[in-house]
Design a protein around this nucleic acid. Structure first.
Lengths: 217, 217, 217, 217
DNA sequence: TATGAATGAGAATTCATTCAT
DNA sequence: TATGAATGAATTCTCATTCAT
């Protein structure tokens, strides 16, 4: 409908109105998503009240149903946004780094930064940890994806000498994942992810020690 | 009847009655706690329906009001039971082990075993991860406690030579905690803690590598 | 059953037991009634919890059902006790007094005293003021009864000259009743009937002024 | 549609919508308040079922939560409405009357009329008589207020000669209050306040007799 | 598109009453 | 008789969703 009117070219008032409304609609969607993220990052999916989302985003409760079908869809939209942002960070980092171990650490650092600064990502993480009939997430997919990437980086590290050859790549990838997840969870509990970057920084030497060769040399 | 029994002994009827009822009451409490644990280990606090708990434990819904005042108190009772059981395991293991590193690993193994086999502990872990106005847990206290213990074991390990002297005890303790928590969370998501022991077993060599001096040198 | 055993005359132990139990039963009943009265004098019938009664009287909740069939019966027992005590006071006073007006004032004073000092009477008054499907009181009967008595006292007063002959006996009786009820209600709200006697004392001159002749003479 | 209307005037659609909804909302609130008043005037606060209120007012039960937060707030709203209406009547009467005694009697008459015809006022009176943790009324404030007014009217009466100079103004004010309250309570019990005006009419001569100087002398 | 009001299906909680001992 | 535990029906409150404007 909107496109049609634009093609007609008449009634510039209507056209402008349409564009304005479109812009308004987009901003509403954004506000809604951010507001919902703020709520879902604090509370459980079941605890979170749509009224809270409405208040937090300044959008009327009824309006949410125009933009997102219902509570579950809203949550799913957040999960999707989270995955997009994390994937973006991931690919961005991987394009730059070269050495296997360096890349692995860089990825950790960047993801930590992203998580501690982006509410939508935080909300996505929390939502991903609570499966259930309502969400029915493929929340595990990203985890497996990430483990595969970690494993390939470790293999690359073994080749380029930055990782000890005695290391079992798959076990090590799982291990790295465990450390990242543990750090996330503890940071969430402690201060809502604010300290995640520092925490990862503190873990770094021990992670290196677990993976790298120099111990033996 | 009363007279008869009176001749037998001093108020045996009343005493026996009291004992019997107490036993029944205790068993009800236990069933309730276990049933609730099964529910809370699957679902979020807010998702969990008291009706499910009642069904799961075979106790009438109204009876929960008699034994535990309300949903929050029920959850708190589980949290308390969890802490008791974890503390019991902890102290038991610590009495046996000697070497710092060995003790640390033994504690991890035993706690993993406990978690993967005890629903109440599982429920406690999940509940502890969702603070909120209703629960208002001091869920962090046990974490700090545990980190202190880990730190002291690591210092002991540095003295007895099982841990590298270059290791920062506090950072390492935090690290160990991170690994345990990460393993818990991932095991929960994967198969409700069933694989936690194996997972920890897989992590063990890397943990050792991170802490110990190049066992090689 | 109890009587039977008494007639047999054997087993003095059993007989004594029976007597003891009887005494115990009576005291339980009394405690229950008093405890219930304390609760019903504070709270509405629907507000009052049988648990409160149990706590207040030190009697187990289940035991109440042995002595009184249920909540409504308990309330009815209180209402009955109240009427007995008020009637007793009434007749006692009426036997002593002679002059019409004096008798009327004496009755007011004595009833005020009784009300302000007897919880059961207080509870009865409150219960009498809340008709309902559960109680279905003939709570109005005593009121009519009392108005009749007041009217006859006033007529007597007109004869013996203590009440002005211009007074309409029935209207005046209703009036006196209104004053008593109003005083009761206000005293209840103010300090749980404690000040009722003083209040009635303060009302006395005005009541006299309304009824007696001397103003004109 | 939107464009069309825009040409007609400045946001008339939105404005009209707002007005219409407001009207509907107001009527719902009113219905709710009246329905609740009908229930609360019959039953005790604790006896009254919100379901009855919903049925009585034709409003869905859930909607009450939207307009009034809960049962207690609903009751408080009634109490407030009652006070407003009684105050309105009071001030209206006081502006007209001149002589002290006449004013006093007029106020009584008018309040009696109001009470016997306005359910909200009736409900307020009943609610005001049952303090409790839930309502926590300052129900006594209006009583004190009213007594002050009565006292000042009586003093005025003493000056203008309509009240006997021997009368103690404060005691008399209390007395008048007692009579009014007593009449209210008895009328409520007898026929739900229907006969209150007549009853007050019957009391009038005696009240006059109590206050006025022997109009005869 | 946006809004506020309305709705109804649950959810937790309460409590009189019953029951086994 | 007395007791504490158990039960279930009712009651209040909550909240996702829908609807009229």
């Amino acid at each position: 409908m909107v496109e049609q009117q634009k093609k007609v070219g008449v009634e510039p008032e209507a056209r402008r109105t349409a564009r304005v409304m479109q812009e308004r609609s987009v901003s509403t969607r954004t506000n809604l998503l951010e507001g919902a993220a703020r709520v879902f990052s604090r509370l459980t999916y079941a605890e979170a009240r749509l009224k809270d989302v409405a208040d937090e985003s300044g959008i009327s409760a009824g309006s949410m149903y125009f933009h997102f079908g219902n509570k579950a869809d809203l949550a799913r939209a957040i999960l999707q946004a989270q995955q997009e942002r994390m994937t973006a960070t991931l690919t961005e980092v991987l394009q730059q780094e070269t050495s296997g171990l360096t890349a692995l650490l860089a990825v950790s650092r960047q993801l930590g930064q992203l998580i501690s600064s982006d509410v939508v990502v935080q909300a996505g993480i929390k939502l991903g940890m609570q499966p259930g009939p309502d969400l029915e997430t493929d929340a595990k997919d990203p985890y497996f994806e990430w483990i595969k990437i970690a494993a390939s980086l470790i293999r690359q590290g073994i080749e380029d000498g930055s990782v000890a050859p005695t290391v079992d790549a798959d076990a090590a990838a799982e291990y790295v994942n465990v450390v990242l997840v543990g750090a996330q969870v503890l940071s969430e509990l402690e201060d809502s992810w604010a300290s995640l970057p520092q925490r990862l920084e503190r873990m770094k030497p021990l992670l290196i020690q677990a993976l790298s060769v120099d111990a033996t040399s």
